Simulated assay, not measured.
Amino acid sequence: MNTIIDLGNGDSLKLEPARRACCLYPGAGGAQVEVTLKVSKARDLVPGITYRVNARMFVERNRDRQRRMLCALSGAYPVTPFIQPGYVYLSGFVTDEQVRAVEQLRAGGDLWVNLALSVSSVEWHVESEPPIQPQRVPAKGELDSGSTRAEGHSLVTLPRSTRAVFESPVPKQRNGDLRFDIKAGEWTAQTAAVDAGNFVELLVPMVDGRDDIDAVAVLCHARELLLEGKVTASISQARMALEQVRKECGTEELYETATKKTPPHRTLAERWAILAEDLWATMSGAVHNDDVTKEITYTNADAAMLVTATAGMLKWLATERETL
């Protein structure tokens, strides 16, 4: 997972991802993305040249490798690479909505990143003019203020090989592609740290008091399992979180009463109770293996819906506890 960029002078740049190649930092409505790359020269034939590295960051699904643009990355400062590897830091910004799209794209798996790199520099090119035509110039002390030629002195002739040599700046740009993967667990930790992306803000309800702390903690675990692609385990944890509160709020008893009535005659509390109990029953396939549930297979999208619905129910049950 590295790329070699030919510098056109017999030398080349090598760029590769650092050990922690990608980090997210909290931002307003999104997150700052920082990508760290290792950079080195193969031979350093022309030392002292400074390079500016920028990139466009794409993400892709490993199975089809269709790139999707995520953001532009700019180099924090120019770098002067040597044979010994150094580091270059690129940063950009992504919105919450963009990171949600990334979560849907990776579907619990590893995230593949493709950087379209642009390396620019200003290099000095040696130029010269054609040989100067032979000409005669006065020798030292030949002329005085009152004559054009001093008696007893000769003229000096410049040699034919004399050239005017100078250096001129030449802007240059080289391009390359660098592809590497970010493991699911590493990306999950980054998104959780910034409280952005995927559906973090939907999965963790804000509850008042300490009565629901255990349920919310279990739901947070369900979220982490889902982001790691562990669908069945995630649904099982979400069901456990809902079960803790449904028993306290008495939705089982309300459900028994509500099912004896036709839907138009049910109270609002009874309708909410049916919704909670049906949600709980829908997730039973993740914890039971009887003749019916053993045929149930949940997808990542199923888990996302069920865990998110559980978060909404926890919030509702917490606020409606006194009326149930």
Rank of each mutant, 00 (worst) to 15 (best):
I274K: 10
L13E: 05
S284I: 01
K41H: 02
E34S: 06
M69E: 06
A76N: 03
T157H: 01
K14L: 02
R43L: 09
N9H: 11
Q135W: 00
L117F: 07
A233N: 14
E253I: 14
P205T: 07
Q244G: 15
R100V: 10
A193Y: 06
A281K: 14
D64P: 00
S284A: 15
L219I: 04
G109Q: 13
M206N: 09
P17R: 05
V102M: 14
E186A: 13
V113F: 02
T188G: 03
L203I: 11
A222D: 08
T95W: 11
T319N: 05
I182F: 05
D291I: 14
T299G: 13
V59M: 04
V207E: 03
L203F: 09
D195G: 09
E256F: 14
M206V: 10
P159F: 04
K247I: 13
H153L: 10
D214Q: 05
T95Q: 14
R63P: 01
V39T: 12
Y89A: 12
G229R: 08
S145R: 15
E127Q: 11
A164S: 12
L158Q: 14
E322Q: 07
R266C: 08
A276I: 09
L37S: 04
N54F: 00
I235A: 09
S120W: 01
L45A: 02
S12D: 11
L45N: 08
A101T: 10
L117T: 02
S154K: 00
A116C: 04
E60C: 05
V170P: 11
W187H: 02
T188D: 04
C220N: 06
R246T: 12
L225I: 01
A273N: 02
R106I: 08
D212P: 01
G48E: 03
V170C: 06
E16N: 02
Q133Y: 04
A139D: 10
A101P: 03
